[in-house]
Design a protein around this nucleic acid. Structure first.
Lengths: 202, 202
DNA sequence: CAGAAGAAAGTGATTGATTACTATCTTATG
DNA sequence: CATAAGATAGTAATCAATCACTTTCTTCTG
């Protein structure tokens, strides 16, 4: 197993490419992540990338696929371990925040794809991720309303929008501060407010 | 006063340039708003832009300045007309949503600037806007806590973050749907939740 | 107040740099 | 040794910015 080889199998090289993009996005604007920069980050010449991806768009599509798979898996895992809908929402919130703190480049590429004008494979992938994420949230919110843990009078869709928006607000604050790890410290305080927004009142 | 002239004064031409960028951003990704596209949008050749702006970055800086001035003016106006801190927050919320609905390109350029890696004049301007906006929110939230209209136990900074994040969530939902005007319909429902989060409980 | 003189604004062509992508040659690995 | 992976060296297209030149507006003078 030649781990330190310059030659990698196609699968390994594709995975390394995705990793390189995520790493670059942590410190660079997605629009200035060129194929040359990606190749440099992974210690390979620019032309070599096109042995494994037909276009740059295909690279971004793979990145979005990686994000969707990892994030949803961790979200589902967090939700499954919780003993009530509200606790599940809190676990998802913190898991999501952790994921962003670990991979600060992810929200950058996410936003970058979503604000594309034309439809594209990576954008479609991003939309699918958001939709699936929203579905999970709405199920949990409905379950919480049914169990009395959440107020039955709240609008489920609005509550899901607020959930995602809350995380986005945190991400943006950390982008402003330039310190993405700070998001972990501020997240609990903001979730307290979210819980007040949706929780049933004693 | 030659209103239909192809020649405009420097001030008018700069204003027209800002308007063109905001219009373009409503339908195009900020990263693909080229100087050629800006010039075409305003019926002028590409080179003419550089009679009034030294660089493209200076154009974006002017755009951010325009946004900051207009948005903060409307926010202050809305707040001044309200008769209580909570009503002021609601008025600001709806005013902000209206502003975005009128100028769908604004959040795009805003996000685009904020996710820049290096510091730049336009990014600095965006940061200043956010900071001033946040200050106004925090003052109102503190005033609301003092008057008993808002819960005195909430974290002011977190409440301000949540306010901005809430709007961002709405913007992103509308970007996904591709229909920015829908944001007006969904805004009231989401603000109801925000009020639950910060309001004092009877 | 007419009109020359100069300033301001716009044109059209061109620059060097950078982009994604490709064609050909070389090397490493199973 | 066969072939997949990478290196090298290209391509055409596009970008922001600059150039010499022209058109339009403004101002000052005789």
């Amino acid at each position: 197993m030649p781990v330190h080889s310059k030659h990698l199998s196609a699968d390994e090289r594709r995975a390394a490419t995705v990793r390189a993009v995520v790493q670059l996005a942590a410190q660079h604007n997605p629009s200035e992540i060129t194929t040359t920069a990606i190749a440099q980050q992974m210690g390979v010449t620019q032309g070599a990338l096109f042995k494994h991806f037909p276009t740059k768009e295909a690279i971004l599509e793979a990145v979005m696929g990686w994000v969707a798979e990892r994030l949803l898996a961790r979200v589902d895992q967090a939700a499954a371990a919780a003993s009530s809908p509200l606790l599940a929402l809190e676990a998802i919130f913190m898991t999501h925040v952790d994921f962003v703190a670990e991979h600060p480049g992810v929200p950058r590429v996410m936003f970058g794809e979503l604000q594309r004008a034309k439809m594209s494979a990576p954008k479609r992938m991003a939309q699918l991720l958001i939709r699936r994420y929203g579905e999970r949230l709405q199920h949990l919110i409905d379950a919480g309303k049914a169990s009395g843990e959440l107020s039955s009078s709240i609008d489920t869709a609005a509550a899901a929008t607020l959930f995602v928006g809350t995380i986005q607000g945190l991400v943006m604050q950390s982008m402003l501060a330039g310190d993405v790890r700070r998001i972990r410290n501020e997240a609990p305080g903001v979730f307290v407010l979210y819980r007040r927004a949706i929780g049933s009142r004693p």
